[in-house]
């Protein structure tokens, strides 16, 4: 617990970063001299010895202190919990470095001891348990999952994170280039794309069918699922701010985004996929199988990187008026 205070001091001046609005409901009589956090704010949260990217979903003032209901990004909702501000850190560059440092220590610790532990998120402090109780009383969340046989503590580690660690390096780089084009250079993917997402999914199914010598039913279902996620997720979580205006112009009359956008944005979906799949609460075996299949799809994207992805983005029409650099 005490360790969490170490990062709290140096971050105040960076509070403006990443949408951290300082209009949190704290008055001057804050019970805690640490930072305060607002609803919707992206933060780092301590869970055991490590800190995780998280999002504040609710804020309440209880028992003379601020309590925050956090969701750990990329983790199953079963991990959501109420914490005090001493468990939270602002989402700043400094704390990103802190997170990496902690992770590194943890890794070397583990390999030194007994190889890999499967318990990625060990429960530590007593007060995390109290929080869990509070949460049950306050919000009847996750009630439908009570019956899930896999919700025992030890089964709740989530292999979904694996997907990200499995990302082929070339595609990671593709995503960084994509980030640079859009957010740093103010360029956009010219729309509509060809091949679009639908074309790519179809090509993959053909490729798979040819390779396996039969229609891969389960693959077809996964591809349908990806398309469904893509259409739904594109406007709400797959666009950089600077792309919003373009979206409004390019996707009209109920067109599905999967007919307009291409590999560049499809790849971003894979970054978000662990978060989305957490809602399905899949059995571990099925999830592992699914991961393999998704990985195979990523490899397919990589193999066709030159024909699926743009090598340069369109610089002519950045419509975000904030971008006069």
């Amino acid at each position: 617990m005490g360790s969490s205070n170490t990062g709290g001091g140096g971050v105040k001046e960076e509070g403006a970063m990443d949408g951290a609005k300082n209009n949190s409901p704290t008055g001057s009589d804050s019970p805690n001299d640490g930072d305060t956090f607002s609803e919707g704010e992206k933060v780092f949260a301590y869970h055991g010895p490590l800190i995780y990217e998280a999002k504040v979903q609710k804020v309440e003032f209880r028992d003379n202190e601020w309590r925050y209901f956090v969701h750990y990004l990329g983790w199953n909702k079963n991990w959501d919990e109420w914490v005090g501000s001493d468990r939270l850190l602002k989402f700043t560059e400094e704390n990103i470095r802190k997170q990496q440092a902690l992770e590194k220590n943890q890794l070397s610790d583990k390999t030194a001891k007994s190889g890999r532990s499967t318990q990625y998120k060990p429960k530590s402090s007593n007060d995390a348990k109290v929080d869990k109780e509070d949460m049950k009383n306050l919000a009847a969340k996750g009630k439908k999952r009570k019956s899930h046989p896999g919700t025992e503590e030890k089964d709740r580690r989530l292999p979904e994170k694996l997907l990200i660690s499995q990302f082929p390096l070339a595609l990671k780089k593709q995503l960084v280039d994509d980030w640079e084009f859009v957010t740093q250079l103010g360029k956009l993917v010219k729309l509509p794309r060809s091949p679009n997402v639908d074309d790519i999914l179809k090509k993959y199914l053909e490729y798979r069918t040819k390779k396996d010598g039969m229609i891969a039913e389960s693959v077809a279902e996964i591809l349908k699922g990806l398309r469904c996620y893509f259409d739904k997720a594109l406007p709400v979580m797959l666009l950089y701010k600077k792309e919003r205006q373009q979206y409004r112009e390019a996707v009209r009359d109920n067109a599905s985004p999967s007919t307009v956008y291409g590999a560049e944005h499809l790849l971003r979906l894979f970054v978000k996929l662990p978060e989305l799949l957490a809602y399905v609460n899949m059995e571990e075996e099925a999830l592992n199988k699914l991961q393999q299949k998704l990985f195979d799809f990523l490899k397919f994207l990589q193999k066709n990187q030159n024909s699926f992805f743009l090598s340069t983005y369109d610089g002519s029409k950045v419509t975000d008026e904030l971008d006069i650099k």
């Binding site: 019956s147 389960s218 279902e221 996964i222 349908k224 699922g225 399905v280 609460n281 899949m282 099925a286």
Partner: peptide, 23 residues
């Protein structure tokens, strides 16, 4: 019990179905 049928009506439908097929 793992894949509540109501989820077959929502956005996660295909992955729930995939889970059932796998099971």
């Amino acid at each position: 019990e793992v894949y509540p049928p109501a989820k077959l009506q929502g956005i996660h439908r295909h992955f729930v179905l995939y889970g059932l097929m796998e099971h």
